[in-house]
């Protein structure tokens, strides 16, 4: 379970997240929606321990991330899978090497076992047979699939996806959204995805929150969000 209490973050005196409280039960897929610059990525970076809150706490499975030192944070992140907006694949490694990276770093699997697991995850993301390619030879959608395989191959308990559909055409957006849902449910991950793509967010998530100026202005399933009387929420969902 992820529990966020009173989270505050400021950059250069400007408040980006203002006293956020949020609980995400284990196994749930939560979409964090909102226009650009409302603190979605900042929230994800806090969940990955990449940013330190100015106030408030973040607990993942009962562990307060803010209380961890650098070494403990590196260990904690073994449980986190992070899908970056552009994939952030290592461009000097092949697809297979990228997916194998977390396994080589954090497990004692032998090369054959690593290869088997890499093949299994590449198949899960429909990238079987593409292992020898370099990221520069892949399309945007393929990169995201490989990045998703890399994020989840290490048995991540929490999957964080930053704008998973950005830069993709509507069909690829739908594919990657369905893939995230399918994989999250299959592997039992708690998933948080940030997006401003309402259609795919609601297609993927069990629950969604809408952010405006660093605050949660709506929280619930699709029916609840659509019935919101908040002007901003109505406008955002309509667009």
């Amino acid at each position: 379970m992820i529990r966020i209490s009173g989270l505050v973050k400021m950059f250069n005196g400007v408040s980006v997240i203002e006293g956020m409280d949020l609980t995400i039960p284990t196994g749930e897929i939560l979409a964090v929606m909102g226009p650009s610059g409302t603190g979605k990525t900042v929230l994800l970076q806090h969940l990955a321990g990449l940013l330190t809150p100015d106030a408030g706490t973040i607990e993942i499975d009962g562990q307060d991330i803010g209380a961890l030192n650098d070494t403990e944070l590196l260990l904690f992140r073994h449980r986190i899978g992070y899908l970056f907006q552009e994939g952030a694949l290592f461009d000097f490694m092949t697809v297979e090497e990228n997916v194998a990276f977390p396994l080589k770093e954090h497990t004692r699997l032998n090369p054959t076992e690593i290869q088997t697991k890499v093949n299994e995850f590449l198949e899960l993301v429909d990238m079987a047979g593409q292992g020898d390619k370099y990221p520069s030879e892949l399309s945007g959608g393929m990169k995201k699939r490989v990045a998703l395989a890399r994020a989840m191959v290490g048995d991540a308990k929490v999957l964080l996806c930053d704008e998973p559909t950005s830069g993709l055409d509507p069909m690829r957006s739908r594919d990657i959204s369905e893939l995230i849902r399918r994989l999250s449910k299959k592997l039992g991950c708690t998933t948080v995805l940030t997006t401003h793509d309402v259609i795919n967010a609601l297609r993927t998530a069990d629950r969604a929150v809408v952010l405006n100026e660093g605050r949660i202005v709506a929280d619930g399933d699709e029916a609840l969000l659509r019935s919101s009387v908040n002007v901003f929420v109505k406008e955002f969902l309509r667009v």
Partner: peptide
């Protein structure tokens, strides 16, 4: 390209 941050997120 966030590759350094990706390394950090993967616990390295």
């Amino acid at each position: 390209n966030n590759q350094l941050q990706a390394t950090r997120v993967m616990g390295v």
